[in-house]
Amino acid sequence: MTAKALVIAGYGLNCEEETALAFGHVGFDARIVHINDLAESPGQLENIQTLCVPGGFSYGDDTGSGNAFAQKMRLTLSDHLKEFIARDTLTIGICNGCQVVVNLGLAPAIDDQYGERTVAVTHNLTARYQCRWVDVAVQDTHSPWLDGIESMHIPVAHGEGRFMMEETILQTLKDKNQIALRYTKPDGQAAKNEFPFNPNGSTDDIAGITDPSGRVLTLMPHPERGMFTSQRDDYTTLKENARRAGQSLPDTSDGMALFQNAARYFETANIKKTA
């Protein structure tokens, strides 16, 4: 049985097509579902293994990015989402989806307190939209999404990507290995809040966090914009080098690994039992 991925759309989310394509590419039965249709028949989540809130600009980022969309999901889907996460499923929030997931309190959900809002993803320190390629290092995490990945060269594109939280929350995230990704310099050294390596001033260079189980991953960079080699900012160099070496370039790039991990997770898990 093919695992199913549901990618949410509507109200200004805008990365649903390429994100669904990523899931499809690695073997998922991927479908795009408008939030109003999902709210109308939330039961469909019972047959889904992977839920994705993709990137975009829901409600124009008004009242804080992801805030209004999270409220819409909270009011219409709250219990269903908790049930979904309680099953052996995967959830990912990317960029605007990350902001939605954090505002919904689905991550970090410290001590499984799903629904509690303890982390904010807010205005970049530059107060300006940043569309750039960054390097992120995978941290000591037990997230199946990041299994076997050490680092990724993928882009960010956001105006509000700065993770902020109280010191105690930060310490807890560290202690419980819920920090999934940190921005680094291209050589892998810590960005140490240096712009543009850390493009938004995020606390402790955080680019993504998980829930306690690691099955919910929420991240600001866009793996789906760095999943094919031709999307990379150094593509023309890579292809020229490959041509001269008489080699062919791999079709896929760093970001795809994340989706492949999701597919692998369900190949090894018993879907019938979880669904």
Binding site: E17, L21, C131, R132, A157, E224, R225, F228, D233
Partner: peptide
């Protein structure tokens, strides 16, 4: 260039800054 999203839709090959 840095404040205009050039790679949404995943289609970018050669972007504004090279």
């Amino acid at each position: 260039s840095y404040q205009y999203d050039y790679n949404v839709q995943g289609s970018a090959v050669i972007g504004p800054l090279q």
